[in-house]
Each structure stands twice: as structure tokens, then as C-alpha cells.
Amino acid sequence: MKTRITTMLGAALILVATMAFSASAAIIPSFDYTVDGAFVEWDTTVGTTGTVLAPATGITGSDPVSLNWGFPMPGGTQDGYHKLSWGDVYDGTNGTTLGAAIPDANMSSLFITAGTGTMTTNGPTEDGMTLFHDNQTINSDSIQVVSGKVRATLTLTPVGYPTFPAFSTVLEFAFYETLNSSATPNDVFVLLNPEAMVEDFKIGNQWYTVSFEGNFDTISPAYQQVLINDGVDPLLAANAVGWVTNEGQLNERLTNIRIVATPEPSTMLLLGLGFGLLGFAGYRRSRS
């Protein structure tokens, strides 16, 4: 009788293990990915706002790009520039002529380079987009950027599964230029939707987690106050993550991404049942 029970438990355990394996077997081994971003709106020191469709005098946009996203979000598109430059047009103060060119002017700029490649599921992190801020000393009478918005998109396309949809998500940033003569002279980029740093999604019967964790710094209290002064919600400012860029140099921030397959709840339940059967089998042996 004991031998029969042990045999039955062994068969049940094999069945549970087979079912658990089947529930998690359809893992997509790799994804082609693209992480890209664009400057989509910017405010200036002369009170104007610029976009691709309505440029602002004194701010030069270059390398236009159209970002697209879809599943699991509603589909959308956003036009912007990979690069913004300023510092070569007078702002009309101190006897200057608004809109006149500044000869041989130093320029500051912001620019983004996209990251593309193939990412292995449960593999190492891969390089995403890179943000540069060439934060140079420019003419104080020039039209300058004071704040703006950046939109970035991540698209993951399953390799070898043409019928499966591509996953996409959007990260929203705001950036703020600060007064160089203040106690907080560096400029700030803040992630407006920090929940996008880690996202779960399902393709086929398998769940995945894609992560940007570790890419963003905690914004210090002094710069949190800068954000509040610029109209950022105090609760968001108090938990702000992003980057602070230094004056007088080229700043570079590289993002990294990683994807892992995560077990379905049903898989975990089956594995739990399997471990329970193992425990029961051990109990039966100890009793005998």
C-alpha cells in the first residue's frame, strides 16, 4: 500500500511539473528594441513657447523625429526634435535688438541619440537612448531655454514571432534651466511618470517585466524646491527622480534597459502544489 501511494505521488508530481513547464514554456527568447526621444515643447526667457509646428525665435531645433507607440497603450504619435540649440540670438534687453544674431556666439544645446539592438530575455542590461546637455557659458543677453518637455518611447518587437504584437511604453520628462548665479546653478531633468521605470506586460501566455531601474538619480531637496518653484506638484517633487547636469561642460546620461520573463500566477500555483506533494511524500516516509 505504501509503495502504491509513493508511486501515485511520484506520478502526480511528474504531472504537476509537466503542467508547470507547459504554462511557462512559451518564453520569447529575444526582442529587437528601440529607445528614442524628442524635445516636444520648450519655453524661453522672452516668454514664448516653441514646438515643431510653431518654432520659437532664438531656439534652433534640428534632426526632426516622429515617435510612435501602441500596444498595450492606445496608439499615438509625437513629432519633435532630437536637438535644441540656443545662445546666438539677442533677447532685446540692455540695448540689443530682439531677434538679432549674436556674432561668433557660444551655444548651449540639448540632444538625444537613440538606442537600438537586440535584447535577450533574462539576459544582461542593454544600452538605451543617451541624453546630452552641452551646458556652456553663453551671452546673458541671448534668448535661452528655461524649461521644456521630453517624450521618450521604448518599443520591443519579439524576434521570430511575427504574429505577436510589439510592446511599447512612453516616458515623460520635464527639464528646467536654473540661474547660474543661484545656489542651485545646475539644470534639472525630472521623470514625470516614474511608474514607467518598471512595467509588466503579457504577450501570448507569458508575462514579462521591462525595467529602466537604476537609470535615474534621486533629486536632492534643494533641487526639489527648484521644481516646486517652477510649478511641479510638491508630491511629485518630493519623490522626484531624474538627472542634474553640471554647468560649463558636456553632460552625458545613458539609459539602460532589461527584460525578464515572470512566472504566471497559475505557474506559481502549480509549483506550490508540486512542493506540497513533495512535503507530503516526505511526511509519509517519516511516518513509515
Rank of each mutant, 00 (worst) to 15 (best):
L271K: 11
L67A: 02
D134P: 03
T163W: 08
L179G: 14
N94M: 07
G115W: 08
V241Q: 14
H133V: 04
Y223Q: 07
F212Y: 13
P124C: 00
S109M: 03
T157N: 13
L277Y: 07
N122I: 06
G272H: 01
K2V: 10
A11Q: 12
D36V: 11
D104W: 12
G272S: 15
D217T: 12
F164M: 14
P72T: 06
V35G: 01
F280W: 10
V146C: 09
D141P: 09
L254W: 07
V226C: 06
E247R: 14
F31Q: 11
N122H: 01
Q224W: 02
A54K: 13
S108Q: 11
T262V: 15
Q136E: 10
G70T: 11
N94A: 14
Y283E: 04
F201M: 11
V190S: 09
T34V: 06
L110E: 10
E172Q: 09
R4N: 10
L254M: 14
D217P: 04
S220L: 12
P234K: 06
N122T: 05
Q225I: 01
V232I: 13
N139R: 03
I112G: 03
H133M: 01
T267S: 10
M107C: 01
A238W: 01
S181K: 06
L9K: 09
L179A: 15
L9P: 10
A56T: 08
G87M: 03
D141I: 05
F111T: 06
P162F: 05
G276H: 05
S66L: 08
M73G: 02
V46F: 04
M73T: 07
G248S: 09
P55H: 02
I138N: 05
T120L: 15
N251M: 05
W42D: 09
V16L: 15
S108W: 04
P64M: 07
I112F: 01
Q78V: 13
W69S: 00
D36W: 05
A26L: 10
M8E: 13
E213R: 07
T97K: 08
I59R: 02
F31E: 10
Y223M: 03
I59S: 06
L131H: 08
V210D: 03
F216G: 05
G75P: 08
N256L: 14
Q225C: 08
F201P: 07
